[in-house]
Design a protein around this nucleic acid. Structure first.
Lengths: 191, 191
DNA sequence: CGTGGCATGTAAACGGTTACATGATTTA
DNA sequence: TAAATCATGTAACCGTTTACATGCCACG
C-alpha cells in the first residue's frame, strides 16, 4: 500500500467508531465528509482486506441491521500508530479541479444565458450543501466527545466556504443578469 | 476523445489568445487557473495532437522567445463550435479531495501540536494564493476585453473563497492554541 | 563549439471509478 | 418461497501524473 489515503480514512473512521463494516464506512464518509472527501466501494473493500493482512485492523463482530449481516472491523494498536504517523505528515494539496470556474472563465465564448444558468446551478448545489452541513451541525450539538472540537472546526471551514461561495453566487447572478440585459439591448439596437 | 477536459481547456485558452504553444498553454493554465485547475505536459501534448487530427485546432506560426522555438496552434471554426458546445453542458462536480480537512477531523487522534501545525501551513498556503490572486487582479485592471467581466467574476470567487478560508484559519489558530494549552494544563495536573 | 536548459514528446504506473457479479437477509 | 434490497467483492477501464527520452536553441 503505497499512497493509499483510502486506508487512512478507514483507520480514522475506525478510530472514532469501532466495529464499522465496509458498507458503514462508505456511508459515514459520504454523510460526514461528502463535501470534502469521497471513497468508492471499489477502493474500500480491497483496502479492508489489505489492512487486515498488514495487521492494522482486524475482523470484529458481525453487525446486524437492515439487510445482510455486516462484517465489522476494529483498529489494532499498529493501526492506531499508523494513523497517528500519517496524521503528523504534511497534508498534500490535491490537484485543483473546479469545472464551474473553468466554464465561467470562458463565458465570453458561450451562448447567451449559459453562464447565468451555471451560476444558478452552482447556487442550488451550494444551498443543498449548506443544508447538509447545517444538519450535521445540529446533530453535532447533541453529542459529546473529546473529538468534538476538531469536528466543529472541520464543519466550520465547510460552512464558511459554502457561505462565501453562496454570497458570491448571489452577486454574480445580479451582475450577469445585468450584462445579459445590456447585451440584448445592444443587439436590439443593432438589429 | 471521450471525456477529456484537457482538450477543452486548450480550446478555451486558444479562444482567448491565438497561436499558443503547448508550453505556453501549460504556463497559462498554471498562472491563471492555478487555484482551480491543472494540466500536465503528459496530457497537453497528446491532446494537441489529437485536436489537430480532429481538425479542432491547426498548427500555426513558430513562436520565438527564450529557448527553443515553440509550435503555436490556432482554433478552427470546428474547434470554436466544439468549445461552445462543451461550455453549454452542465458542469460536473469533481470528486472532493481535501486532505487538510480529513486530518483536521481526526485531530483528536494526532500527537499534540499536529493540527496546529497543519492550520498554520494551510494559512501560509492561502496567503500565497491570495497574493497570487491579488497580483492577477491588479494585472487584470489594466487590460480591456469583452471577456473581462467573466474573468473578474472568476477571480472574484477565488478571492472570496481564499479570504473566507484565511478568516477561518485565523480563528481556528486561536481556538486550537487554547485547546492545546488547556490540554497541557490538564496533563500537568494529572502528572 | 559545446553545454545547459528549454520545449516537445511518450510509456508506464497509479489512484480511482464504473460496471458487473454474487451471496445473504428481509418482507411480502 | 419469490422478490427486493442490502452488503460484499472484483475486474476492466480511464484520466492523470511521473519519469524518462530527445532534439533544439541561446549563450558562454
Amino acid at each position: 500500500m503505497k499512497n493509499s489515503r483510502t486506508a487512512y480514512v478507514i483507520l480514522g473512521m475506525l478510530s472514532i467508531q469501532p466495529n464499522l463494516s465496509g458498507y458503514e464506512i462508505h456511508k459515514a464518509i459520504e454523510d460526514n465528509f461528502g463535501s470534502f472527501w469521497g471513497e468508492s466501494y471499489g477502493q474500500i473493500y480491497p483496502s479492508l482486506k489489505r489492512l487486515v493482512a498488514e495487521g492494522l485492523i482486524e475482523p470484529g463482530k458481525l453487525v446486524s441491521g437492515p439487510g445482510r449481516r455486516r462484517q465489522g472491523y476494529a483498529l489494532t494498536d499498529a493501526g492506531r500508530a499508523s494513523l497517528r504517523e500519517w496524521l503528523a505528515l504534511p497534508f498534500q494539496n490535491d490537484p485543483p479541479r473546479n469545472e464551474f470556474l473553468l466554464k465561467l472563465f470562458f463565458g465570453g465564448e458561450a451562448m447567451p444565458g449559459v453562464s447565468l444558468a451555471h451560476v444558478r446551478e452552482l447556487n442550488e448545489r451550494n444551498r443543498r450543501t449548506l443544508t447538509t452541513l447545517e444538519g450535521i451541525e445540529s446533530m453535532a450539538r447533541g453529542i459529546q466527545s473529546q473529538n468534538k472540537p476538531y469536528w466543529m472546526l472541520t464543519l466550520g471551514l465547510g460552512l464558511a466556504l459554502t457561505r462565501a461561495a453562496l454570497d458570491w453566487g448571489e452577486s454574480a447572478l445580479v451582475e450577469l443578469a445585468a450584462m445579459e440585459a445590456a447585451a440584448v439591448g445592444v443587439d436590439s439596437l443593432r438589429g
